[in-house]
């Protein structure tokens, strides 16, 4: 983990530099607005990943009833909330430039707003239960139940309704529509954000264990 932390800093710096200096702005987008893809998409990816991680640790909790897994799931949701919020902020900056206003009730914007609500609901639910074991069990059940219904929110509903959103990486053509520098920086960014998330997750979960030394 220490090594990861040390490598992460120069790596992310390189990704940021690459995003602004190496890559040419994409065609069909106003000005430099396309550069946001290198930050917006990894945030969105990390927010969704956080949910899967939370669901995985919730399942592990239900099977083992080990409080450690519960604290990791909880930490993953807190980070997911952060990345979902960053996704919305970066997305609305782009929307302001491209479509003229920060918020357009585009299905994709709405689905991430709902994802944000979902993370918030998980935290509310935890806050409303006093007994730690019951809280962990109820939160885990909610996280797993949500994980089954979340794909509808993020993948299915935005496709049923019309959207202004640019083609996503997973698109009907099944191709990655980018030139080589863009592709390199883009996937490097994805990897960097994923590593950043894992490092923060470990940090958060460790912090939570220090704060409540119950077991």
């Amino acid at each position: 983990m220490k090594l990861l932390k040390l490598l992460l800093l120069p790596y992310m710096a390189a990704v940021i530099a690459g995003a602004f200096l190496w890559v040419e702005p994409a065609e069909g987008f106003l000005g430099e607005s396309s550069r946001i893809v290198f930050f917006h998409v990894p945030c969105a990816w990390t927010a969704a990943l956080a949910f899967l991680v939370a669901a995985g640790y919730s399942l592990a909790y239900l099977l083992s009833r080990n409080a450690r897994f519960d604290s990791v799931a909880h930490a993953a949701v807190r980070l997911g909330l952060l990345f979902a919020a960053l996704t919305l902020v970066t997305g609305s900056l782009f929307a302001r430039i491209m479509w003229g206003s920060f918020w357009n009730w585009d299905p994709r914007e709405s689905s991430y707003l709902l994802l944000l609500f979902l993370y918030g609901a998980y935290l509310f639910l935890r806050a409303a239960v006093d007994d730690p074991e019951r809280r962990a069990r109820i939160a885990a059940a909610y996280a797993l139940f949500s994980a089954v219904l979340m794909p509808f929110l993020v993948f299915v509903v935005p496709r049923v309704t019309r959207s202004l959103h640019p083609q996503t990486v997973i698109n009907p053509q099944g191709k990655i529509l980018m030139d080589t520098p863009t592709k390199t920086v883009f996937f490097a960014g994805l990897l960097g954000f994923t590593a950043l998330f894992l490092w923060l997750l470990e940090l958060e979960a460790r912090g939570a264990r220090v704060r409540q030394p119950t077991n």
Binding site: F124, L125, I138, L149, L153, T161
Partner: peptide, 27 residues
């Protein structure tokens, strides 16, 4: 079943159900 044993049940139910029911309500 999840909120039955939590505090503030009525508000909590709306909070937890809305994001999960939205993908049902929209279609």
């Amino acid at each position: 079943a999840l909120v039955a044993r939590a505090g503030q049940r009525n508000v909590l139910f709306l909070v937890v159900s809305f994001p999960l029911l939205a993908p049902l309500l929209l279609p």
